[in-house]
Computed example of a mutant assay.
Amino acid sequence: MNRNLPADLTTKERLYHIIFESDTREGKNFDVALLIAILLSVLTVMLESVSSIVREYGALIRSTEWFFTVIFTIEYFLRIYCARNRKGYILSFYGMVDLISIIPTYLSLIVVGTQYVLMIRILRLLRVFRVLKLYHFLGEAEILSRALRQSAAKITVFLGAVVTLIFIVGSMMYLIEGPENGFTSIPVSIYWAIVTLTTVGYGDIAPQTIAGQMLASIVMIMGYGIIAVPTGIVSVELSKADIKNKKSRVSLNASSKQFCKPQEIKWEKIQQKAK
């Protein structure tokens, strides 16, 4: 349940609770309004990339974009003003995202097209976990992050082997097909090998000879197997991380009970003496 802000707070303390906290009615309303503004600003940037809409409503879209940029700029400096650790906020992940989300609009006055980088504002929606109190999702994200870190070495070795295979297959296809069949160089052949091995298959380049088609068939079949390898690696590490997290919770609960039991016994003795 959201509480009201105390009346005896200074302006700076009041701003801090509204902007950085979400356990008050004012703070919750601010965060919800901020999330809506972020969504509307991202929608504005998306509409600006549609030429038919820009021709008719270009001035309105640019004005709206500047309106949101000014709002977010004021919000950013208010965060710096009322933050308890200003340097910590500025150098934090959210602080960097808040800054980067306003720079492109000002930069677009010098470099045309940089306003589309404003799509990075979508990262600010990560605050929805704090606003809606979805902290258990953050715990699950930490487990996933830990699993990815643990499997990084295995995946790096695997990717190294895949890159080596791509270079070999690309070179072989260049020798088999040659420029007359569209494989004009080894880099082009490597591009084909990447597209085929990942089972994307754009179809802009295709082998014409029987030998080339046989090699392509082998590469396609290998592609399905290669996709499954990193999935298995991450799944194993994710399972290990989940088990480790559950064990730590069990041990924490056990230690908590051991601490509480002597306190309960002591309280019972005090009550007996009082009787």
Rank of each mutant, 00 (worst) to 15 (best):
M1D: 13
M1S: 13
R3K: 15
N4V: 02
P6F: 05
T10N: 09
T11A: 14
K12M: 06
L15V: 00
L15Q: 10
L15R: 00
H17E: 15
I19H: 04
E21H: 12
S22I: 10
D23Y: 10
D23C: 03
D23S: 08
N29E: 08
L35C: 01
A37W: 04
I38Y: 01
L39K: 02
V42S: 09
L43H: 02
T44M: 07
V45S: 07
M46P: 04
R55E: 14
A59P: 05
I61H: 04
E65R: 15
W66T: 06
F67Q: 02
V70P: 05
V70S: 06
I71G: 01
T73F: 02
T73Q: 03
E75I: 15
F77L: 14
F77Y: 14
R79V: 01
I80T: 06
C82T: 08
A83Y: 01
N85V: 10
N85M: 10
R86C: 07
Y89H: 08
S92D: 06
S92A: 07
F93M: 13
Y94V: 15
Y94C: 06
M96Y: 00
D98G: 07
T105P: 01
T105E: 09
Y106P: 03
L107H: 00
S108C: 10
I110E: 09
V111G: 04
V112M: 08
V112S: 15
Y116E: 01
Y116W: 03
V117D: 01
V117H: 03
R121A: 06
L125V: 11
R127G: 14
R127A: 05
F129G: 01
Y135R: 13
G139N: 15
A141R: 05
R146S: 15
L148R: 04
L148Q: 12
Q150Y: 11
S151G: 14
A152D: 12
A153N: 10
I155Q: 07
T156K: 09
V157D: 06
L159D: 04
L159C: 13
G160F: 03
G160W: 02
A161N: 12
T164Q: 10
L165S: 14
G170Y: 02
S171I: 04
M173D: 04
Y174V: 07
E177G: 12
G178H: 13
G178S: 11
P179K: 11
E180S: 15
N181Y: 14
S185R: 01
P187N: 08
P187T: 06
P187K: 08
P187H: 09
P187M: 10
I190E: 02
A193Y: 01
V195L: 00
L197D: 05
G201S: 11
G201I: 02
G203A: 03
D204Y: 10
T209Q: 03
G212K: 00
M214E: 05
M214P: 01
S217A: 15
V219I: 07
V219A: 00
M222N: 00
A228I: 09
V229R: 02
P230F: 08
P230D: 03
T231I: 15
T231H: 09
I233M: 15
S235A: 15
V236A: 13
E237L: 07
S239P: 04
K240D: 04
A241V: 06
D242W: 08
K246H: 08
K246M: 05
A254V: 13
A254N: 13
S255Y: 10
K257F: 14
Q258W: 01
Q263V: 11
Q263P: 08
I265A: 13
E268F: 13
K269W: 10
Q271H: 11
A274E: 13
K275H: 08
